[in-house]
């Protein structure tokens, strides 16, 4: 499993790194960036899903692979 930010949809709301700072960080425009390759283990799945839900532009997704 991994988290992904769709750059086409992201408009810099900044909710992902506010909700899940373990998984995302901000860049110099205030846009979210996935930390590392975005891989998540089971105990962070809930956090990743919350970050996805929090995004007003639905730019964050949890991929099942």
């Amino acid at each position: 499993m991994r988290v992904v930010i769709d750059d086409e949809r992201c408009t810099g709301n900044g909710r992902c790194y506010a909700v899940a700072p373990e998984l995302f960080t901000d860049d110099d425009r205030g846009y979210g960036q996935v930390i590392g390759d975005g891989s998540i283990d089971d105990h962070r799945l809930d956090l990743a899903r919350r970050a996805a839900l929090a995004c007003p532009d639905q730019a964050v997704t949890v991929e099942d692979r």
């Binding site: 408009t11 709301n13 909710r15 909700v19 007003p56 532009d57």
Partner: peptide, 12 residues
């Protein structure tokens, strides 16, 4: 609180 709102709008 993590369920998302559009108080600041959204999109571009």
């Amino acid at each position: 609180a993590d369920r998302g709102h559009v108080t600041f709008g959204g999109g571009i």
